[in-house]
């Protein structure tokens, strides 16, 4: 009766998920930090994981990015060669290579994601050098391009990020991650430590880069406004479980679960 088959414009490539989580669980002793989380993420899709601290969203992010071994379940990722691999079967060298090339990770605290004593140019160029770029001029040119894209004055290319403002540091961290054109970027409260005005600029930048580069993003945030602005889909977590998931505006405008209703009703009106 209802035909859902032919109604898809996306290419075959986009029809395969990039990352699949299956019944992911993590316990620390008797504490279950994360319970039975499953979802599929497609290329170009932005998924927000929301919930308050202690809800398990950071644990989940660590498992998804292969930094923490799950107690149960699997994460599989479709590599650049098209082969889908279970993250636990990747060797450390492969995992770290993935992290330097096809993945990005934007930390809340830029000091964790940057080399604070090394110039901005080298911070951006490091990933390129790590994958074998060996031409100073080209590395510098690419770094300059990226600084421009994240709205950092190229004249600051030789300055160390410790001389940068918080917003600039965060933009630099994004450039450092995107320079190898990853397909998936993890973000952990990327606007967490920033002033509201700086946040708006960063979100706007991230939003346009995500669309331009067709990035898939998994973003952990407790800020529903960030989720609304950036994400297509949202997962609400509480007590280690995903309690509600769906299209972002649907979950935020028509929340079904008591906890989601509480979260939504707690935001000040814009």
């Amino acid at each position: 009766m209802v035909d859902q088959g032919s109604a898809n414009l996306d290419t075959l490539e986009n029809d395969q998920p990039l990352l699949v989580a299956q019944s992911l669980s993590k316990s620390f002793g008797r504490i279950a930090a994360c319970r039975d989380v499953s979802f599929a993420l497609y290329p170009g899709e932005v998924l927000a994981i929301v919930g308050e601290s202690g809800s398990g969203k950071s644990t989940l992010l660590q498992m998804l990015s292969g930094q923490l071994a799950p107690s149960g379940g699997h994460v599989s990722y479709r590599m650049r060669d098209g082969v889908t691999r279970d993250l636990t079967t990747l060797g450390e060298a492969e995992r770290r290579f993935l992290f330097r090339t096809d993945w990005g990770f934007v930390h809340q605290d830029p000091a964790q994601g940057l080399r604070m004593a090394v110039s901005a140019g080298a911070n951006v160029g490091e990933r390129l050098m790590a994958v074998g770029w060996n031409h100073y001029g080209r590395i510098r040119e690419t770094a300059s391009d990226w600084l421009t894209r994240v709205e950092i004055d190229v004249a600051r290319i030789d300055d160390a990020p410790r001389t940068y403002s918080g917003g600039m540091r965060q933009r630099l961290q994004i450039a450092r991650n995107l320079v190898t054109e990853p397909r998936l970027v993890f973000m952990d409260e990327p606007t967490g430590g920033l002033d509201v005005s700086v946040q708006a600029r960063l979100l706007d930048l991230v939003r346009s880069l995500v669309a331009e580069l067709h990035l898939a993003v998994i973003i952990v945030t407790h800020d529903l406004a960030v989720a609304r602005l950036l994400s297509h889909r949202v997962m609400v977590m509480k007590g280690g479980r995903v309690i509600e998931t769906g299209l972002t505006d649907q979950v935020l405008d028509d929340p079904r679960e008591p906890y989601t209703q509480l979260l939504v009703s707690s935001i000040l009106p814009p």
Partner: peptide, 11 residues
């Protein structure tokens, strides 16, 4: 993983 060594030379 020796990208970092080139970071020093880059600097």
């Amino acid at each position: 993983e020796y990208g970092l060594m080139h970071v020093k030379l880059y600097e």
